[in-house]
Amino acid sequence: MFRRSGHKEPFEHAGAVIASDPEMALLMAKECFFRRREGDHLWVVARSDIHSLSDETLLEIAADKSYRFASDYRDVIEKRERALARAREIKGE
């Protein structure tokens, strides 16, 4: 069962029900997970329609890929200032 908590929010997995078919699952999910205004929309998806990765280790990052992270570029302005200063020094300005 995927629930949306507000108009602009993403659907998020929020529980599961056992039901004979999608219509029944929607009816049951409504009662089981929307009793206290928890959201404004609802999806149900059969477990068998969800495809999952067979090998989770594929998600591990083996080598250093720090360049893929924004945080790795935090000091780029400072680096640029240092490089410009060095360039001026070499040119004897």
């Binding site: 029900v17 056992i18 039901a19 009816l27 049951m28 009662e31 089981c32 009793r35």
Partner: peptide, 11 residues
């Protein structure tokens, strides 16, 4: 008959 219906029918 099952837990989901238990909640639904009680409601």
């Amino acid at each position: 008959p099952h837990i989901e219906e238990d909640v639904a029918f009680s409601s």
